[in-house]
Simulated scan of single mutants.
Amino acid sequence: MTPLPPFPAPELNRLTDRQTARIRLYCVPPSGTGSEFFLPWVAAFSELFDLVAVDLPGRGTRTGEPSITDIGWAATGIAEAVAADLRHRPPADGFYAVFGHSFGALLAFEATHRLRSASRTEPDLLALSAVPPPGRDGLDDHIARNLGAGIAAITEIMGWEAPADDALARTVYTPFLADAVALLHHTRREWPPLRARLSVFGGLDDPMVDPGTLHEWGACTTADARVHHFPGGHHYLRTQVAEVVGQLTDDLLTAYRSPAAG
């Protein structure tokens, strides 16, 4: 008998269905959220872009499923889902990119390396937001330092208002706590540099990620890396969708017009 997998698999949700789009962007949401996090992006991106978001179990439309508490499992599942999507529905020009915010950025980074090792493909651009570079205190360190502060600290980290009732609190906090467990169990690996271009985004007042260290992500690729700072804290992009999408669009079009050397 084949053993059951320990967790449900990540899935992809097509936020747009632009079959003639020149650029496909796979988006990995932050902790505790599903693909709905990126719905405000749909109207902000032009018809040149096809948006596909990751849905992890336990959140969004998948509330009620067991949450994944292993980053390696989640990243592998995301890589497999993206690889299958690229095979079954290849982008018009073969160009694709991956974006992740916070916990989602860590998953995007790990998934990209698994795409390279297992499927021999890398995105043309990897965009990472609100995540410390390797060699610096990670999101796991911040979680560990603030566990004793309780639910108020968790609410601050998430960047949300405290839920008004117990049922909503369970829905909101359960996937976040699963992500916290995943972070605390995570063993960081040293990966060889990618060939993909990097775009790195961060808030100037982020208490979890020192904006002055974001340039260190440049060591993670043999291509170029752009760093962009925005006003605000860890969840700066919630209130600056147009600004972030505008900058990301510029980076994507630059990479599309001038591909990094393979």
Rank of each mutant, 00 (worst) to 15 (best):
P163S: 10
P5E: 10
I157G: 02
Q240Y: 13
L237E: 05
W217H: 13
T2N: 14
F99D: 02
A127N: 03
V245Y: 11
S35C: 13
T213N: 11
D166L: 12
L248Y: 12
H228G: 00
F99P: 01
T249W: 06
A108Q: 07
S119W: 14
D124H: 14
G34R: 04
P207C: 13
H215F: 10
G138C: 09
T213C: 08
G218L: 10
S46A: 12
P259Q: 14
G100F: 13
A180D: 04
H185C: 06
G135F: 12
H234A: 03
L115W: 12
F7I: 08
S258V: 05
D140P: 01
P207F: 14
L194F: 02
A219R: 13
P192Q: 06
R59W: 01
H228A: 08
V245E: 07
R24T: 09
G58M: 09
D210N: 15
S119M: 05
P231F: 06
T61C: 03
D210L: 03
V52F: 14
Y96T: 04
T121M: 05
T33K: 13
L252C: 02
Y256A: 08
D250C: 06
T33R: 14
L25Q: 12
S31P: 04
E122Y: 11
T155K: 09
D17T: 10
T61Y: 02
L106I: 01
D70Q: 05
T221Y: 07
I23N: 03
S258W: 01
